[in-house]
Design a protein around this nucleic acid. Structure first.
Lengths: 345, 345
DNA sequence: TTGTATGCGTTATCAA
DNA sequence: TTGATAACGCATACAA
């Protein structure tokens, strides 16, 4: 591979002139500029990014750290962000933490050591230690999806309270009273927010929250299936389930199918986040969807601003995306028999 | 950040001694080794990967280039590969080519310029120019999924001919005669292989291949839906559809649902590749699945070998994964009326 | 407008 | 066993 020295030799100028000419970072006479250009072209020269990075102290790499790379939500986010970033000459390094805080930390340390220009992080930990650690990261950082309270960095996420509140209200208005919430990973920010939206809506409609009907499915399909099973086999089973994410909703739906319970005739179901291939799943599930595209665009936008204006200090920003309701056929009034029973008591 | 010089100063030795002590790349007396270690620890020193890479001529980065990062097949592949690679101290840079050959080429050039240690590529082009270009890439390269004929590099993929042959045979044995093939992107290796498996099986069972029943859905869900529609509204519609991938099968299923056509009572359906959330889709689709895990493991294994034994020349290897059949409820004998009609003619 | 020289942080060669 | 020094390839402050 040709180096800057080869170009200098061929153009009969010094290396600094080549650098100035090619980067436009200084005054170069048109004639030498052309000579340099031609020499560079003839040799197929392009600067070694490694040497540039060593000099500059940072690479043109962006780190993206999420819990699970294969999760369709993050896969889509990666897709959108990567396209945007590559157009700005930035490459994306992805790593999955598996939801493990230590692993998350180790990955971030590796990325910082690699001198990445910025990090997009969906953090799975908000312990004081993790906050301290993240605070110590001097690389531009944007948090997505999961907010870490007490950490003053850019955040892009959706209104999780609103999302579950919307869905809860829908089933309440249909006449449901025994409503279950299939929650996410306990302690995780989004999971707690969604739980809160469920609880507050129940209360504001004068319904009592049965804590036994709030089960965590860990945002996982299999766990969602198991927990839904547990709910559905109860003699006093709920007549509606508000699932905190898409894959748990699918797990719940599968549990119903396996038990011969009809949706929505017997039990209604709602979900947060779009369901992959939701259109071919019967019944179509009523859900509160957050725009992944908007999330990805916003997060990369924040990051690019910080990278390009590293000199000016920008106050941490927050972009909360409002979920939109997509109505399916998975919700109906509670079955007569049950409703009668409840009304009677 | 502490540099090697800081460590040298603190341990009162030269930088070369620090390098030797820390890397174990030369003879160092136990006492100085300990002093260096302690100094390094006290300063929280770790070598700057950028400087190491500049010296070594290559980074500890692996490039992964696929058509679509959000495609569940590739997302899963990325997930598995990334975990394996990070355990070997390698980070993964991902980029989506969008199936565009020029973009694919540009991405690979960027990765090579970045001095990545290796590239995992699912190429969407096998033109002579692309082959020449890929041949010129001096970085360890492993092809996955799509084989590029005439390029002597490691390849990991599945037996695509067998996959579609299996599915075609299943519907033939159920008595179907008018069988459609919802094919992938014309010209793409896997798509052509799958088409071939369909054709040869039809022929070997003495059935005529109606070219009008082979439609390309471009491996895309929407296109698959449209093409399935086209097939299903025909008065002489096929009684079975063999889809060349999962998302097109889902598109076809959706088309059937929208048209009020029952699956499998009216039309049978099969698919290559696992369907995401296939368990909650009614009916469960009969499919030939390839193990993405095996593919990812094998590909990273090949790559790691080449990277770790860059000195010895290894002949290009091929790992063909045998798809396994997963039987669902999407296949049944053709409807009586139609069968009678056909038998009569 | 152009050239010289230095540093970015390592590793490796060669002396000592 | 240890140390001085030259690369790796580039950018830039300073000189000319």
């Amino acid at each position: 591979m040709a180096t800057i020295r080869d170009v200098a030799k061929r153009a009969k100028v010094s290396v600094s002139t080549v650098s100035l000419a090619l980067n436009g970072s200084g005054p170069v006479s048109p004639s030498t500029r052309r000579r340099v250009w031609e020499a560079a072209n003839a040799l197929g020269y392009s600067a070694n990014p490694l040497a540039q990075s060593l000099k500059a102290g940072r690479t043109r790499l962006i780190g993206m750290v999420v819990g699970d790379v294969a999760n369709p939500f993050f896969a889509r986010m990666l897709q959108v962000a990567e396209q945007l970033l590559i157009d700005h000459g930035l490459l994306v390094v992805v790593a999955g933490s598996g939801g493990n805080p230590e692993r998350e930390r180790a990955i971030i340390e590796t990325l910082v050591a690699q001198r990445v220009s910025g990090i997009i992080l969906s953090s799975h930990s908000s312990t004081p230690e993790q906050i301290d650690f993240l605070r110590s990261v001097k690389v531009p950082l944007v948090l997505v999806d999961h907010k870490v309270e007490g950490l003053d960095v850019d955040f892009v996420g959706s209104d999780n309270v609103l999302a579950s509140a919307m869905l809860t209200e829908i089933v309440i208005r249909l006449g449901h009273k025994r409503i279950a919430h299939l929650a996410g990973v306990n302690g995780l920010w989004t999971a707690e927010q969604r739980k809160q939206g469920f609880r507050s809506t129940m209360t504001s409609f004068g319904l009592e929250v049965d804590e036994g009907l709030i089960l965590s499915g860990d945002y996982d399909g299999e766990r969602g299936y198991a927990q839904a099973m547990r709910l559905l086999v109860r003699p006093d089973r709920p007549t509606a389930i508000v699932a905190a994410n898409n894959v748990m909703a699918l797990g719940a739906l599968q549990a119903m199918i396996d038990l011969g319970i009809r949706c929505p005739a017997d039990v209604s179901l709602t979900s947060i986040d779009d369901v992959p291939w939701g259109k071919v799943i019967q019944p179509r599930i009523t859900m509160a969807v957050q725009s992944v595209e908007e999330l990805a665009r916003s997060a990369t936008g924040f990051l690019l601003e910080r990278i390009n204006h590293a000199d000016v200090s920008i106050a941490p920003r927050e972009h909360i995306i409002i979920p939109s309701l997509v109505t399916g056929q998975s919700c109906a009034p509670p079955p007569r028999t049950l409703r009668a029973l409840h009304d009677a008591k």
